[in-house]
């Protein structure tokens, strides 16, 4: 069983605050999901090897060249000096 504490912990590291309703129904729903994926644990541990990674050759990688496009992707919440305003740190 996934505990309430565990869900709180997951919500904390995922930076999500849950509504009251969610906090109420998530434990059961997530528990069912985890129960469902628990079947994976039946696989022997030598089945944990990752073999399916796509490959790319070194020569195909991007050359070290600067290409700046004109338009800047951040346009809102900028100070006069050009800093982006974010929430306070402390």
């Amino acid at each position: 069983m996934i505990s309430k504490d565990e869900i709180e912990y997951l919500a904390k590291i995922s930076k999500i605050s849950l509504t009251e309703d969610e906090a109420k129904k998530f434990p059961e729903q997530l528990d069912k999901t985890i129960e469902y994926i628990d079947i994976l644990d039946e696989l022997a541990s030598d089945h944990s090897i990752i073999l399916d990674l796509q490959e790319i050759k070194f020569d195909e990688l991007r050359d070290d060249v600067v290409r700046m496009s004109g338009a800047l992707p951040i346009t809102r919440n900028l100070t006069e000096e050009g800093f982006l305003k974010g929430p306070k740190m402390k």
């Binding site: 994976l40 644990d41 696989l43 541990s45 944990s48 990752i50 399916d52």
Partner: peptide
């Protein structure tokens, strides 16, 4: 290793 890795392994298989 219980979930993510096993899932990756299954995917390979």
């Amino acid at each position: 290793s219980k979930y993510y890795l096993k899932a990756r392994g299954l995917r390979s298989l």
